[in-house]
Simulated scan of single mutants.
Amino acid sequence: MRIGRIDGRLKLISGELALDVEAASDGRFSADPDQVFPLWPEFTAWAGRQSPGEGEPFTAAQVGPPLLWPAQVFGIGLNYRAHSEEAGVAKPPTSPAVFTKFASSITGPYDTVTLPSDKVDWEVELVAVIGERAYQVSEKDAWRHVAGLTVGQDLSERAVQLTGPVPQFSLGKSYPGFSPIGPVLVTPDEFSDPDDLALGCAVDGETLQDGRTKDLIFSVPELVARLSAVLPLLPGDLIFTGTPSGVGMARDPQRYLKPGTTLVSTIEGIGELRNPLVGP
């Protein structure tokens, strides 16, 4: 199943067609995509009986983020070995490096992003969305708590992020527009292997990152288990699972995003973000 926000409304997606959920369910489910996650088991049971192909055509200009106001947004740092190495970390972490991103940074898959400085870096990421409350769940049971997967960018203003004496990860990664997600949410059963997906990003046709999620140090199920060992994960929560190697800060010379370009972020089986970049 694929769901998305089309003209601000929850839709079931099939190719280029979108079925309005509120209308098709006779008001059983809200038009607001954020409201479906607390009802996820009930919603998926209903959605499995529908025919999304009966929907209406839509265009990219109508598509927004799959959800806008999650209760919690987690970010995971240094979760690919090659990225850990390029960051100068001698040994891969033995536990996830967790930070938060603020929900006001979420934007759509095709929205324009304003760069607040000349130190903004790219980080394409697989984003897991929680569907059922998870607290102290095991790794083997974790996937059933995941509503689906989407594409994300963990944009990072490196000067703010690394201002000391203690790094400010959450602030540096939470400017408006710094968390594009979309274009759809895809349930795990849609993938032959949800733990091995190609992902990458490019600027104006130049590839900047190219990796596979099988190279995650901590997989989606392990992240759900480790996070939920400490606190409840709530329906609609986002987990930005980490980025592969190729970020701008690790290059020699360092390189950052520039106004007037377009950042394209892609994950196999989900789709792409295409965010034009402008100056302040």
Rank of each mutant, 00 (worst) to 15 (best):
R2Q: 15
G4H: 06
R5P: 06
D7A: 11
D7W: 07
G8I: 03
G8Y: 13
R9P: 01
K11D: 11
K11Y: 13
L12T: 11
I13W: 01
S14C: 09
G15W: 10
G15E: 07
A18P: 09
D20R: 07
S25P: 08
G27F: 13
G27N: 12
G27I: 12
F29S: 08
P33A: 03
Q35S: 15
V36N: 01
P38M: 09
E42T: 11
W46A: 01
Q50D: 08
P52H: 10
P57T: 06
F58M: 08
V63W: 00
L67I: 04
L67H: 01
A71R: 14
V73K: 09
G75L: 04
G75V: 01
R81T: 14
A82L: 14
V89G: 04
A90S: 08
P96E: 01
T100Y: 09
F102I: 02
T107A: 00
Y110M: 02
D111A: 14
D121W: 00
E123G: 08
E125K: 02
I130D: 07
I130H: 07
E132V: 12
E132D: 11
R133G: 04
A134V: 04
A142G: 10
R144Q: 13
R144Y: 02
V146K: 01
G148V: 04
G148L: 02
G152I: 06
Q153G: 01
A159N: 05
L162T: 01
S170T: 10
G172Y: 01
K173G: 02
Y175Q: 03
P176R: 01
G177V: 04
F178E: 00
F178Q: 02
P180T: 00
I181L: 09
I181G: 03
G182Q: 11
P183H: 00
V186S: 02
V186P: 02
T187L: 03
D189E: 15
F191W: 11
G200E: 10
A202F: 07
A202H: 10
V203G: 12
D204G: 12
G205F: 15
E206V: 15
E206P: 13
Q209A: 12
Q209P: 11
T213I: 05
T213D: 05
P221S: 09
L227R: 04
V230F: 09
P232E: 14
L238A: 05
G242S: 04
G248E: 09
A250I: 08
D252N: 15
P253T: 06
Q254W: 11
R255Y: 15
E268G: 08
E268P: 10
G269R: 06
G269V: 15
G269C: 14
I270Y: 03
I270K: 00
L273T: 07
P280F: 05
